[in-house]
Design a protein around this nucleic acid. Structure first.
Lengths: 114, 114
DNA sequence: CGGACCGGCAACCATAAGGTTGCGCATTTC
DNA sequence: GAAATGCGCAACCTTATGGTTGCCGGTCCG
């Protein structure tokens, strides 16, 4: 399946927001903190960063809209947890691109050696 | 190696711009077109899209600054080629995160069954 | 009950991002 | 040489993004 087949545009439309959500240093930090499986509160996640709690809240919402984290309200605090599915989707997308590239190189090599 | 080890911040600083560069539908389309190994001119890449040539030029510059493509001037046209290294870096970063997540799940499972 | 803690909401600000139009300059092509 | 093609640059516009401050409502704990 080529990346330009009929289903590819949908794939791009789906993957672009996830890439965008990961395209920020602060959000990558949040993902790194959360992917150890622990649920964490906003204040917990904000401590140790240079920005305010509200900024972290905004970043968490971006991640949540991309499906990369999930939040549950627990008493007075809301706990965030990592959600692995979108990143697995990115992995297979990158694998597709890499495979396409390797195939192209393979054909070029075969052509040169012919 | 944990994602929060001393070298992890540098990794995030390096990877965030690449994720950001891929976080746009139009740029994902450009990457998909280019990862077949063919060099293409700007006008070529712009044909078939809904935006103007200048918009495509801007997107190509973003991709180039992220190291995802390389451009060579050839006569009156400038040809763009895919550059695989940054995406390979993203692959291993995503693999790291996934591994960390899987390890955490494994520990949780072991704890529950203990 | 009263204070401390957690978080949501709204307003606001500065800058970046994505896109357009217009123009000019090389390079091809006829 | 003249027309057409490919591109870069600059100006401009609109909206998104990342961040802040201030305030207010729950919730927990003494």
């Amino acid at each position: 399946m080529s990346l330009r087949s009929s289903s590819a545009p949908a794939a791009r439309r789906n993957h672009a927001p996830i890439f965008a959500a990961l395209g920020d240093e602060t959000r990558l930090l949040l993902v790194a903190k959360l992917c150890d499986g622990q649920r964490r509160s906003i204040s917990d996640l904000a401590s140790g960063t240079k920005v305010t709690r509200q900024a972290i809240t905004k970043h968490l919402r971006v991640l949540e809209n991309a499906g990369l984290v999930r939040s549950v309200r627990a008493g007075r605090e809301s706990l965030y947890a990592f959600e692995p599915r979108p990143m697995r989707a990115l992995q297979s997308y990158l694998d597709q691109v890499a495979r396409q590239w390797d195939d192209a190189l393979g054909r070029l090599k075969a052509f040169v050696e012919a």
